[in-house]
Amino acid sequence: MDADQIRAHLDPIRHEFADPRSLVMPALKFAQTEKGHLTREDMAAVAEATGYSPSFVESVASFYDRLYTRPVGNRVVSVCITLSCMLRGSDEVWEALCEHEGVDHHHGGTSADGRITIQEAQCLGYCDRGACIQVDAEETQGPFTPEEAVKLVEELREAPTPAELWR
């Protein structure tokens, strides 16, 4: 994504902040919607659009879980594994998904076809619907059995990738 596109996204909200540094995060989140992760070029464009140095922008991007500085799959599937969900079977859901996508059971990862990334998430705030799963930044869903979770990723694999990848 280039700096002009980012500027156009920021212009309507610029007046809401006394310090333009507050625009760095919205800029990063928007820049990420193009490829689903942030490349060096994306971060340089954010730096140019906001007026901060590329190294500062990268330091911000690297801090947050939902800003990806490495490539991920077309769809990112976050499996909540924190206590409430664990008691409701999230480990079983996690393992079923890792098995199905052929990724490492400890760290998750991206399927060989590049379609699906399975990642662990810390408490997603849907403990009443554990075991819960969030696809990209869509509304979290649940509760899931391992079979239902596998069905969800199978459907995701067939579904078209959204035009904007909000994560």
Binding site: E16, P26, Y64, D65
Partner: peptide, 12 residues
Amino acid sequence: YDITVYRGAGAY
């Protein structure tokens, strides 16, 4: 008085 909704990006 106005209100801005500001999104975080995943950090407890």
